[in-house]
Amino acid sequence: MAGCDNTDDMLDLLCPMHLRVDPSGVIAHAGPSLAKLRPAAPFAGTRFADRFDLLQPALSDAGAGLADMAGRRLRLRFRDRPATMLVGIAARDADGGAIVNLSFGISIVEAVRDYTLTIADFAPTDLAVELLFLVETKSAAMAALQQMSQRFNGARMAAEEQALTDPGTGLRNRRALDLALERMISDGQEFALMHVDLDRFKQVNDTLGHAAGDHVLRQAAHVMSVETRAEDTLARVGGDEFVLLFHRLCDRDRLGEIAARLIARLEMPIDWQGHRCGISASAGTAISIDYDNPSAARMLADADEALYAAKRAGRGRHRFHPDG
């Protein structure tokens, strides 16, 4: 590169976004990159104050010139659109005017887009290109991560959908119950379906909080597993609702005994942090041999009806469908 004849040429090379302002506040020269930002409105000959809005430092004295702000961090904005924000620093020159070097600062990404700048518009010492590179790489990496999160989220939802266990009690969930019912009916297996609903559970939740409620649910689930056989299916199907499937057990007397024992055990107070939580349970049972063609939906509805008959008769009871 040939030697530079004067200061303007030198500064154009080193600081392509600089301005030279004369002592009266009129712009005498603008660096080539700055000039590119306003191709239709050249800077030379216009007043600095007419082109830029100085945001910092706030001027107490309207007459104060740029040279008086030498060495201070300047924040300014174009008065016309696009109103790009700039940062800068001024130095007093030999004539009492000022050299102001400007930079986009944080607004670099929008600025480069608004003005279609290229690497050639920045001095090699300017980190603008590194910053843009970083932004672009970060965006690509973030997009990949976002996709990954979405995929994981989808996989998690699918896994939950596929899960067969109720996380609160460790019993089977509604989906597992449906699968077991479907299998027993299609196998032509004899079974009884008992719908159990906890009584006064809501009071525990309301007065002692959800932690107490969760504890009571776990205890109730424990009682149910103790009072049933290993081959039976125990499922939690709602907040305080359970469905028990008794495999190959259709004897009303035995089912009645099991229900009575279960309810009695559930009525024993459950201790939670020194509080005695008293609940009870109502139950309704439908038996597969009572149907010519048992269907899951029908048996669930009938057991539910028997349960509500039990509740109407007073809490802590068990009823069969059909009642008899």
């Binding site: 480069v112 290229t118 997009a143």
Partner: peptide
């Protein structure tokens, strides 16, 4: 045609 501006997203 090209400009350096990164459009995120």
């Amino acid at each position: 045609t090209f400009d350096l501006g990164a459009r995120t997203g």
